[in-house]
């Protein structure tokens, strides 16, 4: 049974990979994020396949999918839903908003006002929403993929650092390489491929896999390594503020998911290193002396500076 379930993960990666070509690493990260019950932020230019990735994941995992296009006039009620008066029944009836889905694509999240953003982010954190005094549970699993466009910041409300922290990972898709791009250009319409994608897993199976995460062994030397990473991020003068304990927990969870995805019963330093850029990239900020350095450079320095205990 165990093998079967994890075979299905490979199947998911393969199927989604046939839609988003040449982005296996991003797909694996997104899947690890999902397994670790975290939310994902994709930061990239338009047209890089953010929506397609979210849609394909939802389809292969058999999740109920909703896409919310964020605009500056979007109100919290547009996401959460609202109670509407029904004349026939002479009562208010709650019309759930698009958030009541298992996988939500929050497109261009930085276009909405902070009020609307925080409505979504609170729902992400709590797993439930409270509307008109009534608390409603969100479906499980509940997974948000938010996208934001880093290039055009005019008329946007960039997510503050405290909100960024709620995303377990932030990834970039980037341009496909030449070979993948050729296949993309030669292939058929993505929408048709999406429609044909098989469902590889049930939500219940996904839930079981998420539960197995705690069974992935973490040895003391690995904790030493994670602590060394955290300590270095706090001591060095390169970063403005080090990694929080929440970041540390997230890092370990994501590394476990990555190990599980690679069918390993224990976490290796390599697993931590694989998820580290996605997990801490949006949580580290260069200090005033190192403002010109990109977050990728900073994380590279963090990785390079901390030795793996032998």
């Amino acid at each position: 049974m165990v093998a079967v379930l994890e075979d299905r993960l490979d199947l998911v990666i393969q199927q989604v990979g046939s839609t988003i070509l040449g982005k296996e690493r991003a797909i694996r990260l997104a899947l690890s994020c999902l397994l670790a019950r975290g939310h994902l932020l994709i930061e990239d230019l338009p047209g890089m396949g953010k929506t397609t990735l979210a849609h394909a994941l939802a389809r292969c995992l058999g999740l109920h999918y909703q896409r919310i296009q964020f605009t500056s006039d979007l109100l919290p009620a547009d996401i959460l839903g609202a109670a509407v008066y029904e004349r026939q029944r002479e009562t208010f009836v709650f019309h759930p908003g698009p958030i009541f889905a298992q996988l939500i694509l929050a497109d261009e999240i930085n276009r909405a006002t902070p009020k609307t953003q925080s409505a979504l982010l609170e729902a992400m954190e709590e797993g439930q929403v409270t509307i008109e005094g009534e608390t409603r549970k969100l479906p499980a699993p509940f997974f948000v993929i938010a996208t934001q466009n880093p290039a055009y910041q005019i008329g946007t409300f960039p997510l503050p650092e405290s909100q960024l922290d709620r995303f377990l990972m932030r990834i970039e898709l980037g341009y496909p390489d030449a070979q993948a791009e050729r296949a993309l250009l030669e292939g058929e319409d993505r929408r048709e491929i999406l429609a044909r994608l098989p469902v590889c897993m049930t939500p219940a199976q996904l839930h079981e896999l998420q539960g197995r995460l705690t069974g992935v062994h973490v040895a003391p030397p690995l904790l030493d390594y994670v602590q060394a990473l955290l300590a270095f991020s706090r001591q060095t003068s390169r970063f403005r503020g080090g990694l929080s304990p929440r970041a540390g927990l997230g890092l370990l969870r994501a590394a476990r998911a990555w190990a599980l995805l690679h069918r390993r019963g224990h976490v290796l330093p390599e697993d931590v290193q694989a998820v580290l850029p996605a997990v801490v990239g949006h949580r580290l900020h260069p200090s005033d002396d190192h403002l010109e350095q990109s977050s990728a450079t900073l994380v590279g320095q963090l990785l390079g500076a901390v030795a793996v205990p032998a």
Partner: peptide, 22 residues
């Protein structure tokens, strides 16, 4: 077992500036 190491080698190495400032 299947590993996906080929992507790993693409990890960005920190570019060393010509001289680190004090």
């Amino acid at each position: 077992m299947r590993w996906s190491w080929k992507n790993r080698s693409r990890r960005t190495k920190p570019a060393k500036p010509p001289e680190a400032p004090l």
